[in-house]
Amino acid sequence: MSELNKRMKIQRLQDAIFVGTTRFFAFFVLAVLSGIIISLIYGALPSIKAFGFGFITSSDWNPVTEQFGAWPSIRGTLMSSFIALLFAVPISFGIAIFLTELSPVWLRRPLGVAIELLAGVPSIIYGMWGLFVFAPLFADHVQPWLTSATAGIPFLGTLFDGPPMGIGMFTASLILAIMVIPFISSVMRDVFEVVPPMLKESAYGLGSTTWEVVWNVVVPYTKNGIVGGVMLGLGRALGETMAVTFVIGNAQQIMPSLFEPATTISATLANEFTEAHGELYTSSLIELGLLLFVITFFVLVLSKLLLLQLQRNEGAHS
């Protein structure tokens, strides 16, 4: 009996140590996050006091006169990420469907590993490839065709107007799309594979086509995972730095054409932080970092709310 009591005491001690350790690291992460927020706010205080809310809406960026505005960088960050998702999500969906439903068994594993390996390629490699290989080909063969094909079409004609330089907002968005495809497609493939085979076999037995099985069985069953994969790709695109810096043109301007040079928050920080002189200049760059943090935070909050709404609707329908 004493041996049993001794063993139970040891187990309780081990459980207490485990609970205490996990609680410590959980609060440690929160403490680090709080420290990052506080340091960003403290560093951005001079800029906040000097420009106020106008820093977000202003398009001025002149270090000589110490006039700074974040809107070109914010706009470039949001627009490049949105365009990247427009291309990446359908392609990733197709890749995941092919790997789980259509691909021969012998091809699934090597193709899946190859796609996952793309996620491990450093972003600077994507940037160099985009600048020296993709941008020249895009300028010579794609941009002139897009300009001529959309000429005279309202809105589209303005978006794809401009000299075929190869670098710019559209090029950066395409490079971002290539970078986030491995992340989104891997998540989608994993969640598609957890669909019970009985559900799909039942649909096939009733005469459903492959597309009907995917759209009416696989997608509803895995919609939470699909949204999670898309949000993972969006978070990757919002914070990307080096690849975008190489090909976006790094111009603090707002142009209607997607072929014109632009910038993002990450690209601005990468280009100018080491050259920043003066308290206000440095503080403005830190405030840009704070704004990127806030944008990412709101994206995560919106994605969580969307997942909760999907779960609530699912319960209502059932």
Rank of each mutant, 00 (worst) to 15 (best):
F183Q: 05
F183S: 09
S185T: 02
M188F: 14
R189C: 02
D190L: 06
E193L: 15
E193W: 12
E193N: 11
V194K: 09
V195Y: 05
P196K: 13
M198H: 15
M198K: 14
K200F: 05
K200S: 05
S202V: 12
A203D: 10
A203H: 12
Y204S: 11
Y204D: 07
G205K: 11
L206S: 12
T209E: 00
T209R: 04
W211F: 12
W211I: 15
W211L: 14
E212I: 01
V213N: 13
N216Q: 14
P220F: 05
Y221V: 11
Y221F: 14
T222W: 08
K223V: 05
N224K: 11
G225F: 02
I226A: 08
I226G: 01
V227C: 14
V227Q: 09
G229A: 06
G229K: 10
G229M: 03
M231I: 15
L234R: 08
G235I: 08
R236K: 10
E240M: 08
E240H: 08
T241N: 06
T241M: 14
A243D: 01
I248Y: 07
A251F: 12
A251Y: 11
Q252V: 11
I254H: 03
M255Y: 05
M255T: 06
P256H: 11
S257P: 07
L258M: 07
L258C: 09
L258V: 10
F259C: 03
F259R: 04
A262T: 14
I265V: 10
A267S: 15
T268Y: 05
T268A: 15
L269N: 10
E272A: 09
F273C: 05
E275F: 12
A276H: 00
A276R: 00
H277W: 06
H277G: 03
E279R: 07
T282G: 10
T282M: 13
S283E: 02
S284I: 04
I286Y: 06
E287H: 04
E287L: 07
L291V: 07
L291I: 15
F293I: 07
F293V: 03
T296F: 06
V299H: 00
V299M: 10
L300C: 02
L300V: 11
V301N: 07
L302G: 15
S303L: 08
